[in-house]
């Protein structure tokens, strides 16, 4: 598995010690294996197993689709997870962010905030979006706390899916993140 940056690697955004690099073709098999690991797939809304053929087809569609951007997240030059912006609506100024940390060494500390904040800053500053939407399970207490600490506000609860719809506005985000970024001293 390739999890260190190679010569063809391009950094698209760097902040809080995290570098984001858009998927390149050589990433997608590693990402497929990460995504199919039960600890990751169980977090997904779509938990189905992804085959090599499906992954290749998805990637070919992704590189032509301006409404989606997927990145490998690097911390200390090591690929530790995946972040994404989907349903990017440039006119409406919205998108849906996604994130998972594959490397367990970087869970449950400040690094998930570094990764999420790098993606949020990219969305609000580089793409000039105004609002991010998310869906989280009410049973995932850690996720709820994480998103609240990041400035997300709760919209509504979908009783059919058990999902909570949440949103993040730029102003609320910039206010909330200060409490965490004061500890990011790179």
């Amino acid at each position: 598995m390739i999890n260190t940056p190679g010569p063809s690697r391009k950094w698209d955004f760097h902040r809080y010690g995290v570098s984001l690099s858009k998927f390149i073709e050589s990433d997608i098999e590693m990402v497929r294996q990460w995504r199919n690991t039960p600890k990751i797939s169980q977090q997904m809304l779509d938990k189905t197993y992804i085959t090599e053929k499906q992954q290749q087809a998805w990637y070919q569609q992704l590189i032509q689709d301006e409404s989606q951007q997927y990145f490998l997240a690097y911390f200390k030059e090591q690929a530790i997870g995946v972040v994404s912006l989907t349903k990017i609506d440039r006119l409406g100024g919205t998108a849906e962010p996604g994130m998972y940390i594959y490397n367990d060494d970087f869970l449950n500390n400040i690094v998930p905030f570094c990764v999420a904040f790098a993606l949020n800053d990219f969305a609000f500053e580089e793409l000039q979006l105004k609002r991010l939407y998310g869906k989280i399970y009410l049973t995932n207490r850690a996720s709820i706390r994480f998103h609240e600490a990041s400035g997300y506000q709760i919209d509504k609860h979908d009783k059919n899916t058990g999902l909570q719809i949440i949103h993040l506005d730029k102003h609320a985000y910039n206010f909330a993140k200060q409490k965490i970024t004061q500890f990011i001293r790179y």
Partner: peptide
């Protein structure tokens, strides 16, 4: 890694 209460937010 041992308890659910020690999540990212609690860590901060």
């Amino acid at each position: 890694q041992a308890i659910a209460q020690w999540d990212s937010t609690a860590h901060m």
